[in-house]
Write a protein that binds this DNA or RNA. Structure first.
Lengths: 218, 218
DNA sequence: TTAAACAAAAATATCGAAATTTTTGTGAAT
DNA sequence: ATTCACAAAAATTTCGATATTTTTGTTTAA
């Protein structure tokens, strides 16, 4: 249940839940699209009831919309909701960063530097070829890893869980609203600013960098 | 742990979901207790599958624990998780209060004053008779209404939803850890402080009052 | 032409039985 | 006495059939 990366087709539910979640936040489904358990079951080789359970769970995080007797839908693109998600993510992530800067040690610095190194590498490659689906997926993974690592030493498993929730919600709405890949040239500079501020243990600068980065991301 | 049979089938899920949620956060179930859909179905007059769906949904908010092939449980009492919930609730509620103070008008002030008036009334009665189950339920309701109203003008439906989630999680863990009713004499003074700071449009004082209030609540 | 009433079809929700997994209980071997 | 293997029981999960609700399409009356 906790694994973000799918581990094969060992456990029925788990794979389907996480695979479907990943597809949702990667804009594999058009906003407003109806999600029928009866149809989706064919893609995953399970029953409609199982899909229904999974869709209910995803609806808790706002990743799918549910209406009684009307079934499930991919949430409509909404600039307002996207903005609310941005603000909430800033709130959570700035707090997580502050705590990590206070509590994190050399090991954390090293992990953050490593995550940023990978991210920067992928971003530079992606900058050159923004049409590559493979690079886009890689960028999504690296972006997540960097931001997750940034808050990883906050000391609160609850905050980490809530951060993942809002990160995914934000990403989904951002992609739905912008209709682009979500990648901007300035990302590279902004990520570097955040990294440097974190390594300098400068809470103010780090939070400012984060807020700026996320606001511009839309 | 009384068995309440609901024969009303009208709104299906909805009633069961919210009734069960209410019972969970009111400490009607002992921490660690196994929640078997097959048993619970008798109390609600529905099928086990339906209960399973509902339990899955509640597990998203951390109100019940799920383990693959092991079923559902009431989360164990955990001081650590309770502390994490407190901190997270402070983060959310202070932000909501700040925004409400900035954006709220006279109507909001009136609603907050009204909510506090009810709360103060019930708290004074409850202070005299802390064993009354009826007063306790009423206090829970009024406490929620006051804190909810405080952030109600924040302008973000997302923040409001997230606040309810963390309020419920905090309340559940607080009751599980303290094993008391969660009511303290100082509540009365603290709630008044929060009210006055909000009406004075003093963000600093309001947030300080909130943090103090919630920290002491455990 | 529009609107209301109704019937047919499609979609959704509910349910209990069957399959799978975990837990419990029993007895043999070390 | 302890451990291990294995069978029995209990619990969990999966599944598709049935019931209910919504949507669609058609007819009729104003």
């Amino acid at each position: 249940m906790e694994a973000r990366v799918l581990d094969k087709q060992a456990d029925g539910d788990v794979d389907i839940y996480w695979d479907f979640r990943r597809r949702l936040i990667s804009a594999h489904f058009e906003p407003g699209l109806k999600l029928k358990p009866e149809e989706l079951r064919l893609q995953y080789g399970c029953s409609a009831s199982q899909l229904r359970e999974i869709l209910f769970r995803l609806s808790c995080d706002g990743l799918v919309e549910f209406q009684d007797n009307k079934g499930f839908k991919v949430p409509l693109a909404s600039l307002e909701l996207c903005n609310e998600a941005v603000e909430h993510r800033i709130l959570i992530e700035c707090e997580g960063a502050r705590l990590s800067i206070e509590k994190g040690g050399l090991e954390w610095e090293a992990q953050l530097a490593a995550a940023h190194h990978k991210l920067a590498h992928v971003e530079n490659k992606f900058k050159a070829d923004q049409n590559s689906k493979e690079l886009f997926d890689m960028w999504c993974e690296c972006e997540w890893e960097f931001h997750e690592t940034l808050i990883s030493r906050c000391g609160s498993s609850l905050l980490i869980r809530k951060h993942r929730d809002i990160y995914d919600l934000h990403r989904m709405h951002m992609l739905a609203v912008s209709e682009g890949s979500g990648f901007r040239q300035d990302n590279i500079k902004e990520h570097l600013n955040i990294l440097n501020a974190a390594l300098d243990r400068d809470v103010e600068a780090c939070q400012k960098g984060l807020a700026n980065h996320l606001h511009k991301s839309g």
